[in-house]
């Protein structure tokens, strides 16, 4: 293992200390678990709260997106491990401004179980909770089993859209509805070139040869669709677009946003090489691209690879996507 750290056991706590120290205008640690990050200034009274959470190792997901027009609070587990239900309950309490709280997170068994349990725990605090799960990874299950799909970078769009609706003063049911609408309109696919190492495991999560890539791999190294020799950028981008468009066709006059995301080690240079193909394919189908995002938005530590996320917009979603937001990793307006 070649990582900059002190001891694996302190990896997450020290990361959070540093994050909060670097951006005290955005983040603060809430409660005594050291694993709940909330907005430096709580949202205004009567605003619907939005919480997310999951394992560490994906910055800016999840913690980074705590901010105005985005999330109110977040519970963070060890690397690639769910936070505890108590920590999630604390995050819900931190997010609550009296108007209820939306739990908005990725579809992973452990996170679902713990967020459900956290909902039971905050019932004693009279906090009403709703849930929207992201299940955007098209490589993780067939369309007829969509509810089994994993949530990946599509979360970024869902945070943005739900966050904007909450900031605009919509009530819990309305925020939940629009978050679900975004979750239903988003698709992602990833490709990995190298593995990553969970600090407490000390060795790479999976082995992959120097000249190989894996199409469809999950952000924790879950097996993908195929593994073979590394292909040229245009062929990789072409196949990833094929997979997205097969699952969610895009046609003449459609408006879409697209996120070309590095899984960690892949540099922005390579993302821009891929973006040429993404743009050509979408515009070739007659669609217009709104607010494209190219960069590191959802990662798997030092994994080399890329994911594409496509969000199909209507007037409502586009308005919320363009609304202002502010956190240490993303600002709109």
């Amino acid at each position: 293992m070649k990582k900059i750290l002190n001891t694996p056991a302190d990896y997450v706590d020290e990361m959070l200390d540093g994050l909060v120290a670097a951006y005290p205008e955005f983040y603060r640690l809430h409660g005594d678990s050291h694993r709940v990050v909330a907005r430096a200034q709580a949202g205004r009274a009567g605003k619907v709260g939005i919480v997310s959470g999951g394992g560490s190792g994906h910055l800016p997901i999840f913690t980074g997106y705590v901010g105005t027009g985005l999330l109110d609070a977040c519970a963070i587990g060890d690397v690639f491990a769910s936070p505890s239900s108590e920590q999630m309950a604390d995050a819900i309490r931190a997010a609550d401004q009296g108007a209820g709280v939306l739990r908005l997170y990725g579809n992973y068994g452990g996170d679902v179980m713990n967020f459900d349990m956290a909902g039971d725990l905050v019932e004693f605090d009279d906090i009403r909770c709703t849930t929207v799960l992201l299940a955007d990874d098209v490589a993780s299950a067939a369309p007829e089993e969509r509810e089994k799909r994993r949530g990946v970078a599509g979360m970024v769009y869902a945070f943005k859209i739900a966050g904007a609706a909450a900031e605009a003063g919509q009530d819990l049911d309305a925020v939940t509805r629009v978050a679900q609408k975004a979750a239903d309109a988003v698709r992602s696919v990833g490709a990995a070139l190298s593995s990553c190492t969970v600090p407490q495991a000390g060795r790479p999560t999976f082995d992959i040869a120097e000249d190989e890539m894996e199409m469809g791999m999950g952000i924790h190294g879950e097996p993908g669709v195929w593994r073979n020799k590394l292909r040229p950028a245009d062929a990789i981008a072409g196949e990833m677009m094929d997979r997205l468009l097969a699952d969610m066709p895009v046609g003449q006059g459609d408006r879409v946003s697209v996120l070309v995301n590095s899984l960690g080690a892949t540099p922005p240079e390579e993302l821009y090489i891929l973006y040429r193909v993404v743009k050509a394919r979408l515009e070739g189908a007659g669609a217009s691209i709104v607010m494209p995002l190219v960069g590191r938005y959802a990662t798997s530590m030092e994994m080399a690879g890329v994911s594409f996320t496509l969000l199909k917009l209507d007037e409502e979603l586009e308005g919320l996507l363009r609304a202002p937001c502010d956190c240490a990793f993303w600002r709109v307006g």
């Binding site: 678990s33 587990g77 060890d78 491990a81 769910s82 936070p83 505890s84 239900s85 108590e86 920590q87 068994g109 452990g110 179980m113 713990n114 349990m117 725990l121």
Partner: peptide, 18 residues
């Protein structure tokens, strides 16, 4: 049960607490 919900986020810990 609470000792498990506090110390663990793993599915098994949560199920055991449940």
């Amino acid at each position: 049960a609470q000792a498990f919900t506090k110390t663990s986020g793993s599915s098994y810990g949560t199920l055991f607490a449940t």
